[in-house]
């Protein structure tokens, strides 16, 4: 009798735990869909050619977020162009030359700290370093702050990818008499390029939504500006400002911008994932 009771109790406990785990997954998915649905419901009314062609208006006037979209794209592009080479070269050192060195584990450790460091601290740092020195806010400062966030992501993913390149490829190239730097640049990079590209895309997705680093560096600009040496509009700041405001037309634009950012970043993530899978599949 006791064994049967025990069994029944174990089954019930198991059932409860499994039900809870299903509920947890359902909750997670529900949050995702709730957020996406809220974004679509509030953001779609903002869609229209105005959103992409007009600049941010003063409250009460019609307008769009063209300058913010432009600013975000430019600063993200500059940050990626600056951060990627830095990250790839650092990863190259860690993967190719760091084997016996004592400093490589330290660099790896520090890199992981930087990876998860609060982005507002990075904004503070760039404010002290660039904005105060230069005497004005600038898109350059904003790009630098974003680049500092790109570097650890690229280092992490690139190092993993470089390490995955089979030793046989390395050895074959060296056996042909190729100098080491050519082995790395022409053989290993080419072999790992898809993985590294995935890493870059993930980095872009990460900085696309970052607000805090731009708060004290690029600030914002209500007009169309292509001047990198001055404050530049960006989507996250505009969303921040417009969403917290009491003006209905500003709030609609904020939701439109939020929807655009989220869709862009989610697409990038999915693309990166597809790219990673595709490269893994080919022999």
């Amino acid at each position: 009798m006791q064994a049967a009771d025990l069994y029944a109790r174990r089954r019930t406990v198991n059932g409860i735990y499994l039900a809870l785990s299903m509920a947890a997954t359902a909750t997670g998915l529900a949050i995702l869909f709730l957020i996406l649905w809220t974004l679509l419901r509030n953001g779609i009314p903002a869609l229209g050619s105005d959103l992409f062609t007009e600049t941010t208006p003063p409250p009460g006037s019609r307008g769009g977020i063209a300058n913010a979209i432009y600013g975000s794209i430019v600063m993200t592009a500059v940050a990626t162009l600056v951060g990627t080479p830095v990250g790839v070269l650092t990863a190259t050192y860690l993967a190719e030359f760091g084997a016996g060195s004592r400093i490589a584990p330290v660099i790896r450790f520090v890199n992981d700290i930087l990876l998860s460091a609060p982005s507002i601290i990075i904004g503070l740092f760039v404010y002290e370093l660039m904005v105060l020195r230069m005497g004005h806010f600038s898109a350059w400062a904003g790009s630098v702050a974003l680049a500092i966030i790109v570097v650890p992501v690229v280092v992490r993913t690139s190092e993993d990818m470089l390490r995955l390149v089979p030793a046989s490829l390395r050895e074959a190239a060296t056996a042909l008499g190729t100098p080491q730097w050519k082995v790395i640049v022409m053989v290993i990079y080419r072999a790992a390029i898809q993985g590294m590209l995935t890493g870059v895309m993930l980095a872009v997705a990460r900085i696309g939504g970052e607000t805090a680093p731009l708060l004290f560096t690029a600030l914002n600009n209500q007009f169309w500006s292509t001047n990198m040496n001055g404050p530049m509009a960006n989507l996250p700041f505009v969303i921040f400002q417009f969403a917290m405001s009491p003006y209905a037309d500003w709030q609609v634009l904020a939701w439109g911008g939020a929807m655009l950012i989220t869709i862009a970043i989610l697409l990038l993530n999915i693309l990166a994932r597809l790219l990673a899978n595709w490269s893994n599949r080919s022999p």
Binding site: L32, I35, T38, F240
Partner: peptide, 21 residues
Amino acid sequence: TLIELLAAIPSIIYGIWGLFV
């Protein structure tokens, strides 16, 4: 993948969702 997409949503979106919803 869907769960990981939750991580991809920018934090400012969580903020405005929190405020408005």
